[in-house]
C-alpha cells in the first residue's frame, strides 16, 4: 500500500441479506489511497456490488466501519454523502425523461447551483467526456448509442466535482472497441482530475489494464489485493485461475501479431 493518506477505508465489514441467510460481504478490510484507481474483481454473488453500495450508504453495513477522508460515514447524512460521491451505474441508468444536459446537471441542481453555473458545467463536462456540446446537450438518452450513454453517465457522476467516483461495471454492456476507448478516456480523466476511483468489474483483463491496484472478491470475502505484479505472485488458487486467461490471451496474441521488425 502506498504512503498516501487513505481516502476510503473499510474495516471488518459485514453485510448479509434475507435475515442473515445470505452473507454478501464477510469481514472485508480494505484501504484505498487518495488518487488511487482500485478495481474490485469477482463473479456474480462475490459481494463486490454490495461493497460499492455500502460506500455511499445506498445500504448500511451490519457490522464494521467505513471511513471516507477519515470520517465515519455513519455520522454523515446519507443524502449529502451521495451528492459528494460520483456514481457510474451499470448501463448508465440515465433518466429517460430528462435530456442529456438535465441528466448531467442533476446533482448540481439538487445542490441548488444557479442555472447558469449548471449550464456552464454541463458544457465543460461534455467536452471532458468528448461529446459534441451542440449535438448532444438537448437529446434524450434513447437517442444515444450505448457508448455515448455511458459517457453521459460518467459526466453525470463528475458533475458536482466529487473527489471519489464509484463505478458499477460501467463498461460491461459495451462492444470491445467502445469499451476500450471509454476505459482509456476515463483513466485519463482520473489522472487529470485527481480522482479516487473504485471500479467494480467481472473482467480481470479490464481491471489489470486500467487500475493501479486490483482486489479480488469471492463469496463475500476479500481473497487478494495488490498491483498486477503483486497479484501475479499470489498463491491463491482462484486468483491464479483468474490470471490464467489474460496470460494465455497475451501469449497467444503475441504469437498471432508479431511485430514487423521481429519477423
Amino acid at each position: 500500500m502506498s504512503d498516501a493518506p487513505l481516502m476510503i477505508a473499510y474495516a471488518d465489514l459485514d453485510k448479509s441479506f434475507d435475515g442473515g441467510r445470505v452473507k454478501a460481504v464477510d469481514a472485508v478490510s480494505l484501504g484505498v489511497a487518495a488518487g488511487e484507481f482500485l478495481a474490485i474483481v469477482g463473479g456474480s454473488g462475490s459481494g463486490k456490488t454490495t461493497l460499492l453500495r455500502l460506500t455511499n450508504r445506498l445500504i448500511d453495513a451490519d457490522r464494521g466501519q467505513i471511513r471516507i477522508a477519515g470520517e465515519d460515514i455513519r455520522t454523515a447524512d446519507p443524502i449529502a454523502l451521495r451528492r459528494r460521491i460520483g456514481y457510474v451505474f451499470q448501463s448508465a441508468a440515465l433518466f429517460p425523461h430528462l435530456s442529456v444536459a438535465a441528466n448531467i446537471g442533476i446533482t448540481p441542481k439538487l445542490l441548488g447551483w444557479p442555472a447558469r453555473a449548471i449550464a456552464a458545467r454541463v458544457d465543460e463536462l461534455l467536452d471532458l467526456v468528448r461529446l459534441d456540446r451542440a449535438a448532444h446537450r438537448d437529446r434524450f438518452p434513447q437517442e444515444l448509442s450505448g457508448g455515448q450513454r455511458q459517457r453521459v453517465g460518467v459526466a453525470r457522476a463528475l458533475a458536482a466535482r466529487p473527489q471519489i467516483v464509484l463505478m458499477d461495471e460501467p463498461f460491461g454492456a459495451l462492444d470491445p472497441l467502445t469499451r476500450d476507448a471509454l476505459g482509456e478516456d476515463f483513466r485519463a480523466l482520473h489522472e487529470r482530475l485527481g480522482l479516487t476511483t473504485i471500479m467494480i468489474t467481472h473482467d480481470i483483463t479490464e481491471a489489470l489494464l486500467l487500475a493501479d491496484r486490483v482486489a479480488v472478491m469471492r463469496g463475500g470475502q476479500l481473497l487478494a489485493q495488490g498491483t498486477p505484479a503483486e497479484l501475479s505472485h499470489s498463491d491463491d488458487a482462484y486468483v491464479g485461475e483468474l490470471l490464467r486467461t489474460p496470460r494465455r490471451q497475451a501469449a497467444r496474441l503475441a504469437e498471432l501479431l508479431p511485430r514487423d521488425d521481429r519477423a
Partner: peptide
C-alpha cells in the same frame, strides 16, 4: 435501476 440511480445521484425520497 432508475430509482437506485436517483438515490445514487443524491435525491431524497421525495425528490
Amino acid at each position: 435501476a432508475l430509482i437506485e440511480a436517483a438515490q445514487g445521484v443524491g435525491m431524497t425520497p421525495r425528490q
